[in-house]
């Protein structure tokens, strides 16, 4: 996948090796309890952290739920789409 090759190219390798983030966005359909459940099940976050992130999504409209390499974030975003959450990734710069 071309997007993964980009990550390996020298000019995009940064001192911080985890410059990409996964965002989950608020939507009117996903249940608050379900979003909490997904964060616990997929990211293995404890309930307190999962609920805080869920409330951020609900109240602020979005939350950063993970960070890492571009490849890792593409995997997280695809997993979130599998669960039906509205997720995107971007470079944190």
């Amino acid at each position: 996948m071309s997007s993964q090759l980009d990550v390996a190219s020298p000019e995009t390798v940064t001192a911080v090796d985890r410059p990409w983030i996964t965002l989950v966005w608020n939507d009117p359909i996903n249940l608050m309890s379900y979003v909490t459940f997904v964060f616990m099940e997929y990211f293995k976050y404890d309930r307190a952290k999962a609920e805080l992130l869920m409330l951020d999504v609900h109240e602020k409209g979005r939350a950063v739920v993970s960070n890492g390499t571009r490849e890792e974030m593409e995997r997280d975003v695809a997993a979130m789409h599998g669960y039906g959450l509205w997720a995107t990734l971007m470079k944190d710069d």
């Binding site: 939507d27 359909i29 593409e74 975003v77 695809a78 789409h81 039906g84 509205w86 997720a87 995107t88 990734l89 971007m90």
Partner: peptide, 10 residues
Amino acid sequence: ARLFPDAYPD
């Protein structure tokens, strides 16, 4: 489009 949203909005 809701079930399969764009991963890179920009």
